[in-house]
Amino acid sequence: MNTTPAPRIAIIGAGPGGLTCARILQRHGITATVYDRDAGPDARNQGGTLDLHADNGQIALREAGLLEEFFQLARPEGQEMRQLDPAGTVLFHHVPEMGERFKPEIDRGQLRDLLLNSLQPGTVRWGHTLQAISGPDEGPRQLHFANGSTVEADLVVGADGAWSKVRRVISPAIPQYSGVSFLEAWFHDVEAQHPDIAELVGQGGAAAADGDRGLFAQRNSGDHIRVYLIQRAPADWITAGGLTPQNTDGIRAVLLERYRNWSPSMRRPISDNDGLYVDRPIFALPVPHSWEHSSTVTLLGDAAHLMPPLGVGVNLAMLDACELALALARHDTVDDAIHAYEKTMLPRSTEMAQLLDGAAEHLLSTQLPDFSAQGNH
């Protein structure tokens, strides 16, 4: 970036996309500040495990100078995948080759820490919940936060996920419910406490479906397994049934009835979980999703192209972040950089979104061609 003075870049959201963008910018001598609503880096659980692909997520980590550190943390054995039927019969089993590193698994928390620790101190400003953005399209923009502070920026990058506040400035699009809902269940100390489930899942993931219901189980680091129970149901099915998310026994009873035709071994990942279930209805942005170009605002990741969780979300967010950062490093103005970035990102995300449009339904199909594509929940 050759402009003087240097543009003031505000990235909203300290997820993998926002942090990757800040890291690559810093490697090119460009300052950016990341604002996140969480009170701190440990304010909440970062979620399960994900696979970073050689053709997108790993490209971003290479540009960030973190690829070798990633491989030291990642679990290549997590690429193992089993597809089962509701009786527990193995229909498909992929065991990764020795040295296979196309899409090794890493816990979301570990990836976030890797990125956070690579940034200059003070890059992330915690406790900043964005409420509104004002100012003309040509800039500067004013960011208004819930804590009463206001920040001026020449570029606002929306890396703030599915319900992005930044997106509202340039797009009226709102995520729509897919008709498919996930319910997340956690299992801890699995080798000792849940050996049958550990054996069922293996070192990677295991999936099953009967046409109306599905299950995807995935090993995390630290002897944990997360299971995602997949149903075609109203988004509010728990409260509509007179239950609350805290009513674990009540939800469990409903699930055991719905999965009653599955074998006892396949019902254990449904009913033997440690702690609460976590309700995760699946939303997606309309396809295609684009917006009128702004010279001061752009989006990346789920803020730009929320899709069903089929193994691409974080990978695309990190690739977006990489390409935006490189565009800012290589162009003389922010506006030119945004044009260059969106010229590549929008067609790519549209193509992928069209491929995955309605694909949440595929998670329930008995005809799944290759569940090894899953892994980004």
Rank of each mutant, 00 (worst) to 15 (best):
D36I: 03
S295Q: 15
H305C: 07
D38F: 08
E100W: 09
H224V: 12
L143Y: 01
T298G: 05
R252N: 14
P234L: 02
G313E: 01
E69R: 11
Q203D: 10
A39M: 13
G250P: 06
D55Y: 00
G241C: 12
G17P: 07
Q231K: 14
L19S: 02
P96N: 05
S294T: 08
A206Y: 07
S365M: 13
A87W: 09
L111H: 02
D320M: 01
L229D: 03
S178V: 10
S290F: 11
S181Y: 09
S221F: 15
H194C: 11
V227C: 08
T33D: 04
I197H: 04
I11T: 04
R267G: 09
P86Q: 07
G222L: 12
E69Y: 00
G13N: 09
H305L: 08
V297M: 04
K103H: 14
S349L: 14
M1F: 08
D196M: 13
D196N: 14
T239C: 03
H305W: 03
A327S: 14
L67V: 09
E80P: 03
S178F: 06
R226E: 09
V169H: 05
P86F: 06
Q142Y: 08
R226H: 11
D107V: 00
N315A: 04
N315G: 11
K103D: 08
P245V: 04
P104D: 10
A337Y: 02
S181T: 13
